[in-house]
Simulated assay, not measured.
Amino acid sequence: MSQTELNDKNIKPNDDLIFSIIGDKQLLWEQVMTYLYNNNKNVSEEWKYYNDGKIWLFRALKKKNTLFWIRIIEDTFRIAFWFAGRLEPEIMQSNLPDNLKSQYKNAKPFNKSRSIYIDMQDSVDFENVKKLIDLKIKN
């Protein structure tokens, strides 16, 4: 796995810092944010430093509900979605690729939820993130 970035509590992330770490994945970042804001109302975002992991994480919210988390890692970023166990049938019947369905099915539960995460590499990942955002908004 790539080196985790943004671990200095005193340096709050901004676009320049993020883009200097994720490099050519900047376009994917911009596509995700554009899709999020263009297709949803009442969306907000926050950066927060978490002492337990010693890292800054980005959180996208709709009203007070978390849509997804982003962790910046060298040369890319990881988007993580958490879905309640009750949504398993919907996730399994969705048009998500089998590897993401398996990831959800095999994820260790936390507070009756399980995660799906994607390390952003290309347009296929972006298409899957759009599906996950839509699924999260719907539920």
Rank of each mutant, 00 (worst) to 15 (best):
L17D: 04
L17P: 06
I18A: 03
I18E: 00
I18K: 01
S20P: 01
I21V: 15
I21G: 03
I21M: 01
D24F: 03
Q26P: 00
Q26A: 10
Q26N: 10
L28K: 09
L28W: 01
L28M: 13
W29G: 00
E30S: 12
E30Y: 01
E30I: 09
Q31V: 10
V32G: 00
M33A: 04
T34D: 02
T34W: 04
T34Y: 06
Y35A: 02
Y35S: 09
L36F: 11
N38H: 14
N38Y: 11
N38K: 15
N40W: 05
N42W: 06
V43K: 03
V43G: 01
V43T: 12
S44Y: 06
E46N: 13
K48W: 05
K48F: 10
K48E: 14
Y49T: 04
Y50D: 07
D52M: 06
D52K: 13
I55Q: 15
W56F: 05
L57Q: 12
L57H: 07
L57R: 13
F58Q: 02
R59Y: 10
R59E: 14
R59H: 09
K63Y: 12
K64S: 12
K64L: 10
K64Y: 04
K64E: 07
K64R: 10
N65W: 06
N65T: 06
N65E: 09
T66L: 00
L67H: 01
F68Y: 08
F68K: 03
W69M: 07
I70H: 00
R71M: 15
I73Q: 09
E74R: 14
E74P: 07
I79Q: 05
I79V: 15
F81S: 03
W82L: 06
G85S: 12
R86E: 10
L87M: 06
E88Q: 15
E88V: 03
P89V: 01
E90V: 08
I91F: 02
I91H: 00
M92N: 11
M92A: 05
M92T: 01
Q93W: 01
Q93E: 15
Q93D: 10
Q93S: 15
S94F: 05
S94M: 04
N95T: 12
L96P: 00
P97H: 01
P97D: 10
D98R: 08
D98T: 12
L100D: 02
L100K: 11
K101C: 06
S102R: 15
Y104P: 01
Y104V: 03
Y104M: 08
Y104N: 06
K105Y: 09
A107R: 08
K108Q: 14
P109I: 07
P109F: 07
F110D: 10
F110V: 15
F110G: 05
F110H: 14
